[in-house]
Nucleic acid binder design. Sequence first.
DNA 1: GCACACTCGACCTAAAAAGTCGAGAAAGTC
DNA 2: GACTTTCTCGACTTTTTAGGTCGAGTGTGC
Lengths: 152, 152
Amino acid sequence: MRVSAKADYAVRAAVELAAAGEGEPVKGERLATSQDIPLQFLEHILLELKHQGLVRARRGAKGGYWLARPAAEVTVADVVRAVEGPIANVQSMPPETIEYAGNAESLRDVWIAVRANIRSVLEEVTLADLVSGELPSSVEALTAEPDSWAAR
Amino acid sequence: MRVSAKADYAVRAAVELAAAGEGEPVKGERLATSQDIPLQFLEHILLELKHQGLVRARRGAKGGYWLARPAAEVTVADVVRAVEGPIANVQSMPPETIEYAGNAESLRDVWIAVRANIRSVLEEVTLADLVSGELPSSVEALTAEPDSWAAR
DNA sequence: GCACACTCGACCTAAAAAGTCGAGAAAGTC
DNA sequence: GACTTTCTCGACTTTTTAGGTCGAGTGTGC
């Protein structure tokens, strides 16, 4: 139940692209320095985002990366899935395919519920939301709870 | 964003202990076979659960493992934390301690919201709930959504 | 005292995560 | 058309985690 560096980097780079607007391409190096990500690792991540159709790129002078879709139409879930695959898998299997023996039968439903709740955040927040700093109200409601900020 | 085999095993073993009741200790081997978990790996897990005070054990004939607290007072979150540490860390750091540069500032709030939502499931469900098969209504509400079952 | 079953450190392998290198190919500039 | 820039991408390295095994030891009950 942890978020990998790769996923975190991917979202941050995508936000940076979103912030740059539809204008001209942003160079990998600028993304790397502005978000403090190792350049060559970032290039791999951007390549994956490109392969998933989230990002486009051009080489050469005036080259760089840009979002393939408007920032308001790209969710955080899209970016995370592009680099990590399905969200909230259990033992690398989607929870709905797992058969639990006897007493643990209901455990599957718990993992399903967890996944649903993760999705309800990641699929609601778009890159445009992140750039503007205004998250959807359902998400703000969660961060408003003081309890959400307690380490545990 | 995945659930490790270890966490899954730990919860299943704990459920099995919960189902056994307060009576006599359950042998490691019985837990291993009933939930189909490699015995020696399971023993490590049970040892961790013991170190965290969730489980007690006795050696020798008539030995075995049992829950240190009533099943209704042990949540799935307790078990997962015992073997995996804090839930929903980003790059091994608790999200509230992370500083994001410039445009990515709000990303921290997203991870906080995700963690809050995961907790709201795992901290609500107890081992007793799992044994009885009746999950809290807030969790059942999530699994009732057909969308929750769709792979993505 | 003997068998049973947990204790626990040491070890192991495979895979994933995280990061690096370097050759090459497209795009623009002069 | 040479040159520079910047992405492309396979190969490789390193570190960490996941997942699992072994075996000597130790407490317990009979």
